[in-house]
């Protein structure tokens, strides 16, 4: 027993703790950097992007670089902070960049009335693919580009649907 204790006291605990701490901090910083600036994983939920993204159970990659650098173009699927509730992040398809004229159905399913708007400077027009069950720019108007925090580039799960989620136009 005393031999065991002596051996325990001989271990360089301080060096091990320092090494572990610095490595831990570096790993945390690396993960945070990847997550905030390069790409992150998200599980979208809800029916608004059917059929491109399922109601549940998908795992997609959001590419942060192109959102930050302004490479988002019309036709891409983006994720952004909801302008109505900042605690929510929603995923929709960009249908118009600044200066574009967008025509949309005001009340799909009930009437054929359509409306055309010009997207103001610095804003984008976003709409769900499933126009019957989506709360998007048709309700809250164009969204400032600054709210966009990722472009959805590919799907990982389910494995059957693995692949790029590209633009559809």
């Amino acid at each position: 027993m005393s031999r065991f204790l002596r051996r325990l006291a001989g271990v360089r605990w301080r060096a091990i703790a320092a090494g572990g701490l610095s490595r831990g901090v570096l790993v945390f910083c690396g993960v945070s950097f990847m997550n905030e600036r390069v790409a992150s994983l998200t599980c979208p939920r809800g029916p608004s992007m059917l059929p491109a993204i399922n109601i549940m159970g998908d795992l997609v990659v959001a590419d942060k670089v192109s959102a930050r650098c302004g490479w988002v173009a019309s036709g891409d699927v983006v994720q952004f902070v909801s302008p109505e509730d900042p605690r929510k992040t929603v995923m929709k398809r960009v249908l118009g960049m600044e200066g574009d004229a967008v025509t949309y159905l005001v009340d799909p399913g009930n009437s054929d009335a359509s409306k055309t708007v010009v997207v103001p400077k610095g804003h984008i027009w976003v709409q769900g693919d499933n126009i019957y069950a989506s709360r998007d720019s048709r309700q809250f108007g164009p969204v400032p580009y600054g709210l966009v925090n990722g472009r959805i580039c590919c799907r990982i799960l389910p494995l059957k649907g693995f692949g790029l989620i590209g633009s559809k136009e």
Partner: peptide
């Protein structure tokens, strides 16, 4: 998002995201 009135904040311009 627990901001209080009167604080000074920084934000991305709604007109130009850069």
């Amino acid at each position: 998002y627990d901001f209080s009135r009167g604080e000074v904040v920084t934000f991305v311009s709604p007109v130009d995201h850069r």
